[in-house]
Amino acid sequence: MELIWILIGFFALCTMVFIVIAIFLPEWVGITGKKALEIQKHQQTDENKQQDGEKSPPLE
């Protein structure tokens, strides 16, 4: 019975750590965070420019 309480406590601790990481570092756990959304928005504007016939700037 003691082992069960230890395992429940360990599971609860791991779950709490995961939630904290998901809130403060979402990209680490596969959640699209603010930075990733900014990159996606930037890429979409580049694609729209290419479809309109404009050339994107060369990569450096």
Results as ranks from 00 to 15, higher is better:
residue 1 M to E: 03
residue 1 M to R: 10
residue 2 E to Y: 10
residue 3 L to K: 08
residue 4 I to T: 06
residue 4 I to Y: 13
residue 4 I to E: 13
residue 4 I to V: 09
residue 4 I to H: 09
residue 5 W to S: 11
residue 5 W to P: 05
residue 5 W to G: 06
residue 5 W to K: 11
residue 5 W to I: 10
residue 6 I to P: 00
residue 7 L to G: 07
residue 8 I to K: 14
residue 9 G to E: 03
residue 9 G to V: 11
residue 10 F to Y: 06
residue 10 F to K: 01
residue 10 F to V: 14
residue 10 F to G: 09
residue 11 F to M: 08
residue 11 F to H: 08
residue 11 F to R: 02
residue 11 F to D: 02
residue 12 A to E: 05
residue 14 C to V: 10
residue 14 C to H: 08
residue 14 C to M: 12
residue 15 T to Y: 06
residue 15 T to E: 01
residue 16 M to Y: 08
residue 17 V to H: 01
residue 17 V to S: 13
residue 18 F to D: 04
residue 18 F to W: 08
residue 19 I to L: 14
residue 19 I to C: 03
residue 19 I to E: 03
residue 20 V to T: 01
residue 20 V to G: 07
residue 21 I to H: 05
residue 21 I to P: 00
residue 21 I to M: 13
residue 22 A to F: 01
residue 22 A to N: 08
residue 23 I to H: 05
residue 23 I to V: 13
residue 23 I to L: 14
residue 23 I to C: 09
residue 23 I to E: 06
residue 23 I to S: 05
residue 24 F to Y: 15
residue 24 F to M: 13
residue 24 F to E: 06
residue 25 L to E: 02
residue 25 L to C: 10
residue 25 L to W: 13
residue 26 P to V: 09
residue 26 P to N: 06
residue 27 E to Y: 02
residue 27 E to L: 10
residue 27 E to P: 01
residue 27 E to M: 08
residue 28 W to R: 14
residue 29 V to P: 00
residue 30 G to Q: 09
residue 30 G to A: 02
residue 31 I to Y: 05
residue 32 T to Y: 01
residue 32 T to D: 07
residue 33 G to F: 05
residue 34 K to C: 03
residue 34 K to L: 02
residue 35 K to A: 13
residue 35 K to I: 10
residue 36 A to N: 08
residue 37 L to K: 15
residue 37 L to N: 12
residue 38 E to C: 12
residue 40 Q to A: 07
residue 41 K to V: 02
residue 41 K to P: 03
residue 41 K to W: 03
residue 42 H to Q: 15
residue 42 H to C: 07
residue 43 Q to M: 07
residue 43 Q to K: 06
residue 43 Q to H: 05
residue 43 Q to G: 04
residue 44 Q to Y: 00
residue 44 Q to K: 14
residue 45 T to P: 03
residue 46 D to I: 04
residue 46 D to G: 04
residue 47 E to W: 06
residue 48 N to P: 01
residue 48 N to L: 13
residue 48 N to A: 14
residue 48 N to Y: 09
residue 48 N to M: 13
residue 49 K to H: 09
residue 50 Q to D: 07
residue 50 Q to K: 15
residue 51 Q to M: 02
residue 51 Q to G: 03
residue 51 Q to S: 10
residue 51 Q to D: 10
residue 52 D to W: 12
residue 53 G to Q: 01
residue 54 E to W: 05
residue 55 K to P: 00
residue 55 K to D: 11
residue 56 S to F: 02
residue 56 S to Q: 13
residue 57 P to T: 00
residue 57 P to N: 11
residue 57 P to V: 07
residue 58 P to Y: 07
residue 58 P to N: 02
residue 58 P to G: 12
residue 59 L to C: 03
residue 59 L to K: 06
residue 59 L to D: 07
residue 59 L to M: 11
residue 59 L to H: 14
residue 60 E to G: 08
residue 60 E to T: 01
